[in-house]
């Protein structure tokens, strides 16, 4: 009698909760999806239609002019994709191992100086040398000018990701490390064969963030890359867009002939071109966010 009562109560509240869940998540999804649809349709609208009628859910005066501008020289775009994929892959793989390893060490409760090192890393998020000195140092002493390493190395070790990763590592029971030690495993073996397999969701998260960071980074390319054949995709697109904006900005002050570019639809098309591939990768990352992934390993 008593038992069935709680059951009914439970299912009732569960049902109500489910309704709320679905509604809230659906609304949130709509709010996030609509602008994206507008963006895609904007990228296929003519510049004049956007100017006079604004944006809508469907393309106005359908045209592919903006994409044609981006893909004017298809080889450059393909090359830029290649560069982006290269730096994203290399940076993410090495960065991920580095971050996971470091996070593991600074979350070890028996490691005496973990707070000191945490602070040593954290401090760099508060202070930095400023653009000028960083630039000079990288160029003159590290010789990173026009080198792809300038796009990979500075972003490889992100302290924010390190500290988030630390919370994932901390969630792993200390007992596991101890039992591994008792089994005679060295620190490296403990880390690679015991800790890493348990870090899947954390690794998926941080790996995705690293990849997104590399994929979206145009700033380092702007500072350090000179030759156009080393432009990553985002910077290639960014420079296209900036050209229109910069010319408009200085037109008031300078005696420079200014030509017009389809800036509105171009902005939208750029976003589509740059986002596309990463959206395709997302589902692969998602499969690691499955509830209870740690179960087997903990038991084993």
């Amino acid at each position: 009698m008593k038992e069935s009562k709680t059951k009914i109560k439970g299912s009732k509240s569960t049902k109500a909760f489910n309704v709320i869940c679905y509604t809230v998540v659906s609304i949130a999804a709509m709010v996030c999806l609509l602008p994206f649809i507008i963006l895609v349709s904007g990228s296929f609208s003519s510049e004049q239609a956007i100017r006079f009628e604004g944006y809508g859910l469907l393309p106005k005066e359908f045209t592919t002019a903006a994409y044609e501008l981006i893909f004017k020289v298809p080889q450059t775009v393909i090359k830029a994709y290649g560069i982006s994929i290269f730096i994203t892959a290399v940076g993410t793989i090495f960065g991920l191992i580095l971050i996971a390893m470091t996070a593991y060490v600074i979350s070890r409760k028996d490691f005496k100086y973990r707070n000191v090192f945490s602070f040593f890393f954290y401090f760099t998020t508060l202070f930095n040398g400023g653009m000028v000195c960083t630039y000079i140092f990288y160029i003159q002493y590290l010789h990173l000018k026009d080198s792809l390493w300038a796009l990979i190395l500075p972003g490889m070790f992100n302290v924010f990701y390190l500290l988030i990763m630390r919370t994932f590592v901390s969630a792993i029971p200390t007992a596991l490390i101890e039992s591994a030690k008792i089994d005679g495993a060295g620190e490296f073996r403990t880390f690679f064969s015991v800790i890493l397999p348990l870090l899947k969701s954390g690794m998926a998260t941080i790996g995705m963030f690293l990849a997104l960071g590399y994929w979206n980074d145009w700033y380092n390319a702007m500072l350090y890359i000179n030759s156009e054949d080393k432009y990553p995709l985002q910077y290639m697109l960014y420079s296209l867009l900036q050209k229109a904006q910069a010319l408009a900005n200085i037109a008031g002050q300078a005696s420079i002939p200014v030509a017009d570019l389809p800036s509105n639809s171009l902005k939208m098309a750029m976003a589509v071109v740059a986002t596309g591939p990463i959206i395709l990768v997302y589902p692969f990352v998602q499969k690691y966010f499955v509830k209870g992934i740690t179960i087997g390993s903990v038991k084993g």
Binding site: I136, Q242, K243, L247
Partner: peptide
């Protein structure tokens, strides 16, 4: 055009 505002002054300090 994408980089001049940052990079132009840097030209003389690098």
């Amino acid at each position: 055009w994408a980089e001049y505002s940052n990079k132009y002054p840097l030209l003389y300090s690098s």
